[in-house]
Amino acid sequence: MREELLRSFVDMDEQEAVRIARELVETEGGAVAVLDTCKEAMEEVGRLFEAGEYFLSELIAAGDMFNQIMEFTLPKLQGEEVASLGTMVLGTVQGDVHNIGKDIFKVMAEASGINVIDIGIDVPHEKFVEAIKEHKPELVGMCCLITLGVDSMKRTIEVIKEAGLRDDIKIIIGGGRVSQAVMEHVGADAWADDAARGVRLSKELLGKE
């Protein structure tokens, strides 16, 4: 059944994948199996995306499937030990309201085992600082789709520095407007303008790959 779930998930057969997951989750140890399989499937979808076989449309559909399945799977995992690679505070920076890319990245990061705290869009600098203080993440992810966001990231990182928190975290930036030059300009540690690469780099920054 795990094989079938994996295949239908990766092939974007939504109805079939959800049906199998519903069945599997009711079996002994099924919830963990569903979770693991879906994570594996997401990883495969990400690989296909990086290879240019899949497109954003598939990432969105996969994310939606993942969320649908998790909705009935996560409650069954209560009490189970779910391994986490680390915590990431993630948000779209001040002045920018685009969220689709961030949401895609979030699902894929979660599927890879990163505990993601999503602090939303148009996030003021101070809110990043507060979230870092509250959740003590290893990683901070910033998403930026518009050019004015470049300056927002720069200032957010300055504010994080001023709060004395910069050395405790690694910062990865993503979204349509980021590049090597932007990363250097704003003082981040890594950049990715596609989700799969972003997940890979995040794991690297966590020392898990």
Binding site: T147, V150, D151, R177, V178, S179, A181, V182, E184, H185, V186
Partner: peptide, 9 residues
């Protein structure tokens, strides 16, 4: 020309 470059280079 990438506007991000105009900002950062």
């Amino acid at each position: 020309i990438d506007v991000s470059d105009i900002i950062s280079l």
